[in-house]
């Protein structure tokens, strides 16, 4: 039997004006038809930090993450406000394609395009109007270096991306996202399909990337959250239960549900 926890007892931190925020959601709700999958999520994400969203399967953390760059459009109904640069990007009038160029996303399974490594990175750039060859080449190198993949692939940029290993493919997907020079990078369990060595590489990459980007990462791996994030939010059955610094989350959780989850005596 799963233990019952009160959804009224939550501990969600807020930030005062001294912290500059990259994004913030207010009363975010997500519905899959009649299924209310996310209740009143109020989270703010400080700039240039890694925020981890943790929780069990079905807790709504991926659903929440996918709402942040409107990837739930056409799949679920999302209400509430998503603040990004003083704009509520959950408004129907917002140009979602523009938004996604600023808020990039990396998925659970590596999903490089069935194209060459170089083409994986430049395709979207070209589609967005960047035609200058030298500039494109520069972006390829910069983003591959950023994703710590350059040394492994610099001699085979014209090879198919599908010939890379899973870990390399995932880092290519990260490179593809950061080539767009986004503000925020959303990662949906980016290491769950990778082996431990690849996972370490991706985590090192993320720690390096937070200097330039704000990163929000969904993970079901608590060790990973502890290793990479500075803020941590715990989701339970579609509710944000606790949001605090990662240190506090793992050493001193405030409410019973989080304590049980961290201690592994959940349900």
């Amino acid at each position: 039997m799963l233990k019952q926890y009160s959804f009224d007892e939550t501990a969600v931190q807020t930030f005062d004006d001294s912290t500059s925020l990259a994004m913030k959601t207010e009363n975010l709700q997500v519905f899959y038809g009649a299924n209310h999958a996310m209740h009143d999520a109020n989270l703010a994400f400080p700039k240039n930090q890694i925020t981890a969203l943790i929780g069990a399967s079905g807790s709504g953390k991926s659903t929440y993450l996918r709402s942040l760059n409107r990837m739930n459009d056409g799949i679920a109904t999302v209400t509430g406000k998503i603040w990004y640069h003083q704009v509520d990007i959950n408004e129907p009038t917002v140009n979602i394609y523009e938004i996604r160029r600023h808020i990039g996303m990396v998925f659970q399974r590596p999903n490089p395009f069935a194209k060459s490594i170089r083409e994986n990175i430049v395709y979207a750039l070209r589609a967005n109007g960047l035609k200058d060859k030298a500039e494109l080449e520069e972006r390829v190198e910069k983003s591959l270096r950023g994703a710590a993949l350059w040394d492994e692939v610099k001699d085979s940029l014209d090879k198919s991306a599908l010939s890379l290993s899973g870990g390399q493919q995932q880092r290519l997907c990260i490179a593809r996202s950061i080539a767009m020079e986004p503000d925020v990078l959303l990662l949906d369990e980016p290491c769950s399909a990778l082996d431990p060595i690849s996972t370490v590489k991706v985590e090192e990459t993320l720690l390096e990337l937070q200097k330039k980007y704000t990163i929000i990462i969904v993970t079901h791996n608590m060790q990973q959250a502890a290793r990479v994030s500075s803020q941590c939010a715990f989701f339970h059955l579609g509710h944000v239960m606790e949001y605090t610094s990662t240190g506090n989350m793992f050493s001193n959780p405030q409410i019973p549900v989080t304590q049980d989850y961290i201690a592994g005596s959940f349900g």
Binding site: N69, R100, F107, N111, A124, A127, S177
Partner: peptide
């Protein structure tokens, strides 16, 4: 996932 990859890049 290929479609999602394209869409997530603002295509």
């Amino acid at each position: 996932s290929q479609r999602e990859a394209g869409l997530s890049l603002g295509l």
